Simulated assay, not measured.
Amino acid sequence: MRTVGVEEELLLVRSGTGQAVSLAQQVLRRADVIGDADPDGPGPTGAPGAAGSSLDGELQRQQVETGTAPHRHLLALHEELGSWRAHAESAARRVGARAVALGTSPLPVETLAAPDERYRRIVDHFGRLGSEQLVCGCHVHVAVESPGEAVAVLDRVRVWLPTLLAVSANSPYWQGEDSGYASYRAQVMGRWPAAGPPDLFGSHRAYRERVEAMLATGVVLDEGMVYLDARPSRTYPTLEFRAADVCQDPRDAVVVAALCRALVQTAAEEWDAGKAAPPVPTQMLRLATWQASRFGMSGELLDPGTSRPLPAADVVGALVDHVRPALREADDDLALVEEGVARLREVGTGADRQRRELERTGSLGDVVAAAVRTTHGLDGEGHDFTVAGIGVAHGSGR
């Protein structure tokens, strides 16, 4: 069974107001202290024995990034996701802030880039595009056996990336206003010159040639700025899925991870069997990405095979059917995904949650407060929740 790991970007907000705050450096210092004091809990250099786990800074000082170790079992992945969220939250509360899984800040914010030489170069080179970049995504890493397999899988999963975006949509607000999109983060990311749906490459050599050609232009500063919606990882032997918003509900993040792993396994088997990759033009995938960004799960999505609009529930159902054999092979993944998709149909995405909360309270600050509770697996009364019938508590730092 392939391993899967998740990186989550979390927004730092002021307790009581929900305003994004530039406290990443202070939070990371507090996290160091907590990690040193509790050797059994996750710390800034990772959980004991878990290579790849981390809590780190990001482009803007209003966000931090967590990263889990690779996991074979989704319950273990879910537990580590919750632990890192709780660790970031515990450190944030020590400096008067909260850590929340929101794709964008609902309230107006003035960004401040982190004191990192690479980030400074990005902001200097890209101007307002760099300085306005405050979005939080969910990146899923799925193990692959070789660079050649990574690109073969990429060619076959690319048509499903907009569906993953729709399932995870969690960023309807931008600078205090409703953007009209379920995932405005996808629109912000799409402004970068090397972002968006990947082309069909055909081979690892062709992929590398394209990356080197992009770097030779001088437009992108380094390979890390090849912000494709999925790409072979530069650091790990994985395919990295980058299409998703950070999920407000950690259970949704686990569903996204399960679907990504099943997509990789299904695509690898198709490649081994000599089945050709779907020849969908990149421009059609751009249209599908826009549609998913605009409506999330609340409207129509474009069918990956025909590029014609269908109800979102039908397209998500088609994705589950496509990867069903792979989900069945991986422990309880099928039951977890089916339960998660049913929950999304009933409760909605993070974007739906945010809009309902604003309609209920009239306050974007209350939207953020509700998202903080959901981020850490608590309802309004602080109750725990379950994943696929298994009780898991994630209310406090370790």
Results as ranks from 00 to 15, higher is better:
H204D: 11
H204F: 13
H204R: 09
R205M: 07
R205L: 10
A206Q: 09
A206R: 14
A206N: 14
A206M: 03
Y207Q: 05
Y207D: 08
Y207W: 14
Y207A: 05
Y207G: 06
Y207E: 02
R208P: 03
R208K: 12
R208I: 03
E209L: 10
E209A: 15
E209R: 15
E209N: 08
E209V: 08
R210N: 10
R210D: 10
R210W: 10
V211F: 11
V211Q: 08
V211N: 06
V211P: 00
E212R: 15
E212S: 14
A213Q: 15
A213L: 12
A213D: 14
A213M: 10
M214N: 05
M214K: 09
M214R: 11
M214H: 09
M214C: 10
M214F: 13
M214D: 09
M214Q: 15
L215F: 00
L215Q: 05
L215P: 06
L215Y: 00
L215G: 04
A216Y: 01
A216D: 10
A216P: 06
A216V: 02
A216S: 14
T217S: 08
T217I: 06
T217W: 03
T217G: 04
T217C: 05
G218S: 03
V219G: 10
V219W: 02
V219C: 07
V219H: 05
V220F: 02
V220S: 01
V220T: 02
V220E: 00
L221C: 03
L221W: 01
L221N: 04
L221I: 00
D222Q: 11
D222L: 04
D222G: 12
E223T: 08
E223C: 02
E223P: 01
G224A: 06
G224Q: 08
G224I: 04
G224M: 03
G224V: 02
M225I: 00
V226S: 07
V226C: 14
V226E: 07
V226D: 03
V226G: 08
Y227E: 01
Y227F: 14
Y227A: 01
L228E: 04
L228V: 02
L228Y: 03
D229P: 05
D229W: 01
D229G: 06
D229R: 09
D229I: 01
D229S: 11
A230E: 02
A230L: 06
A230W: 00
A230D: 03
R231A: 04
R231Q: 05
R231S: 05
R231H: 09
R231N: 02
P232T: 01
P232F: 08
S233G: 10
S233D: 12
S233A: 12
S233L: 09
T235W: 15
T235D: 14
T235A: 13
T235E: 14
T235C: 06
T235K: 15
Y236I: 00
Y236D: 14
Y236Q: 13
P237D: 06
P237Y: 05
P237V: 03
P237N: 07
P237A: 08
P237T: 02
T238K: 13
T238H: 14
T238V: 11
T238P: 08
L239V: 00
L239I: 04
L239H: 11
E240R: 08
E240Q: 14
F241C: 07
F241Y: 15
F241S: 05
F241T: 06
R242E: 12
R242A: 08
R242Y: 12
R242K: 13
R242T: 10
R242I: 03
A243E: 15
A243Q: 14
A243G: 11
A244D: 09
A244P: 13
A244E: 13
A244M: 08
D245Y: 13
D245L: 09
